[in-house]
């Protein structure tokens, strides 16, 4: 096996799961997410020489995936099920209250504007810093921070309407 093939396999093994989850939250469809991840890795294979540093792999793959998603919209806006509940897992519900809150949060996350949801998913799923997210999204750091702020605040405001902490969503 040549070194390019080894590098590629390492990338696929390391990032398939998280890329799939990111794609799922991007398009909210299991089948489209799977297609997106496959297309992403195929394109990554064709462009593998462009990846110079292992540390840049995550951002590089995310950038490809977002482009593939954009291409999907260019081709045709496909119909898909809004929410595929079957693919959601809740393995750690300690109480009915928690289950209710989690279910509610799930709906809130799904309905969060994509501009807010996308950086939040990158941060929580990949542990990316604001700078890394800014690079992938092609935004400046302040904009990313603002979107993270608004996303979290919106979730919190809708989750805990009885406990406003006085944060303006326009902050």
């Amino acid at each position: 096996m040549n070194s390019a093939q080894q590098r590629y396999e390492a990338l696929v093994r390391a990032y398939t799961a998280d890329l799939y989850r990111y794609a799922w939250w991007l398009c909210r469809s299991a089948s489209i997410a799977e297609d997106l991840v496959q297309d992403t890795f195929l394109r990554a294979w064709k462009s593998l020489p462009q990846l110079q540093e292992a540390g840049a792999a995550k951002a590089w793959l995310l950038t490809i995936l977002r482009h593939e998603n954009a291409r999907r919209f260019e081709r045709k806006q496909l119909d898909y099920t809004e929410v595929e509940q079957d693919s959601l897992v809740d393995t750690s519900s300690p109480s009915p209250e928690h289950a209710v809150a989690t279910d509610r949060l799930h709906r809130l996350l799904l309905n969060l504007p994509q501009d807010y949801r996308e950086p939040l998913v990158m941060q929580l799923l990949f542990g990316m810093t604001g700078d890394e997210i800014a690079t992938v999204l092609g935004l400046n750091l302040n904009t990313v921070n603002t979107r993270l702020f608004r996303g979290r605040a919106q979730l919190r405001a809708q989750l805990q309407p009885d406990y406003p902490d006085g944060v303006s969503l326009h902050g």
């Binding site: 396999e9 398939t16 989690t102 949060l105 799930h106």
Partner: peptide, 20 residues
């Protein structure tokens, strides 16, 4: 923490193998 749990959707079995 709750968000992370929600984000952690099931990944199709052997997706990496199929990609390879």
């Amino acid at each position: 923490q709750w968000c992370k749990q929600l984000l952690n959707v099931d990944v199709p079995a052997q997706l990496a193998d199929r990609i390879l």
